[in-house]
Design a protein around this nucleic acid. Structure first.
Lengths: 235, 235
DNA sequence: CATTAAAGATAGTAAAGCTATCGAATATAC
DNA sequence: GTATATTCGATAGCTTTACTATCTTTAATG
């Protein structure tokens, strides 16, 4: 028996719900591939339309502009991660165990592609690493925030902060540590792949998708050192 | 007696050296103000030219495009920080002391405006926080890196890693910790100001430039916890 | 069959991004 | 002091991006 988990998105993220039509779902699927291939700056609605065999105007019926589409993809990703976290830590009591599951999730380890139907999660993960900060590093971040466009990311951080507080109820920087954990994983991954001298992990051999494990070692060390706990070495 | 420290830049960062002419220096000074005011995406060479009372084409004689100008500003900033770090930690022996100076520097505390002549360091700092990751989060990062455009940032990280290793010669993640330190300060500052629920520090009251000190507390905790050292509380 | 919503098709505007050229001003060389 | 070269201002133009408008076709619904 198959379960399909539907991610319900904030209506301000789109003009027409892309999940409500075939064309809309193709926009999502193809935009992930396009953003991943050419990068956010070089992607245009025209190129996306051509690749989809449709017209620019059709895409504008779903999304105000390219930036909103990026925000949508990133929001979708964080809601997906948040759900996965809830699912995978359900019934666990040990916060250490929960944090381990979280790290594996953020590094997209042992991925079950069947749960995401038709869209390319690895490509989406690459987009999140390379482009997601552009979703909020704008001049209009306050306005976007007012419309709750970043709620999925904030919800996930709050959930992580909750786990941190289970482990150390008196830790005074739970939310900052949660957001730092996510961001650190992202740009260390990016640096490792593109500016490796900024890290202590070599670049990943081409074609290989799994991380050599040193990155997770660093993050684990950072996390548990901060929480004053012994390092939970599992790698 | 006044000393003017000249920052010598990599020649690939520009077409014509902006520091070699009056117009060039005005481009730098005004672009900092423009980027700070309207944000990188909404800034254009046309707007910059208008504000300077010159023409678009003149700016193109100095910089290939807007992105290269950003890379130049960011590179200048990191070279300046690196020099300041060398200067301020000169003759110090205690690595703890050096790291404290570094933190204050990265948070732009006790700034001596006289050392930067005519350009607005606080505005440049804001640009670095909000826009600097866009300098490398591109599809052409590898090509840019080949041209050594990010060398100042890498040099600074290497220097910080050196201090870390003075303190803990066996610490295995010195470079990653160095880059994480810088990046963490940046986006925690950004979050604090724009998405405060992602942090444990409230937003800074408008018009106030000094940080309430909680951010530095977090970063210090993260740093010294990682290095297994007692926390050096000075705030 | 009539209605209406979605999407295809075509067109067009405004701005951004960038290049080319020409002449005036100014500095430098001889 | 005249020749030469460099810099900058000024104008123009081209291509692409970003976005809007409108009209027709198609498909779904009652």
């Amino acid at each position: 028996m198959e379960y399909s988990v539907h991610v319900r998105m904030n209506e301000r993220l789109f003009l027409r719900d892309p999940d409500g039509s075939d064309l809309g779902r193709r926009i999502i699927r193809q935009s992930i591939l396009l953003f991943d291939e050419v990068g956010f700056e070089d992607a245009t609605f025209r190129k996306l339309a051509e690749r989809m065999g449709t017209k620019e105007a059709s895409i504008y019926r779903y999304f105000e502009n390219k930036h909103r589409l990026l925000v949508y993809l990133v929001a979708w990703y964080w809601q997906w991660i948040d759900f996965q976290l809830v699912f995978r830590t359900n019934n666990l009591t040990d916060p250490h165990e929960k944090l381990e599951r979280l790290l594996n999730l953020l590094l997209l380890k042992d991925l079950d592609q069947s749960m995401t139907d038709d869209l390319d999660l690895k490509a989406l993960h690459s987009i999140v690493i390379r482009e997601s900060s552009k979703a909020y590093l704008t001049h209009h971040v306050t306005e976007d925030n007012r419309q709750h466009l970043f709620k999925p990311y904030k919800d996930l951080c709050a959930r992580i902060a909750g786990i941190i507080l289970e482990l150390r109820p008196d830790y005074p920087y739970a939310r900052s540590l949660a957001s730092s954990l996510i961001e650190t994983i992202h740009y260390q991954t990016f640096f490792m792949q593109n500016l490796p001298s900024l890290t202590d992990f070599g670049p990943i051999p081409a074609g290989q998708h799994t991380h050599p494990g040193k990155l997770i070692g660093f993050v684990r060390h950072l996390l548990y050192a901060s929480l004053g706990a012994p390092i939970h070495n599992q790698d």
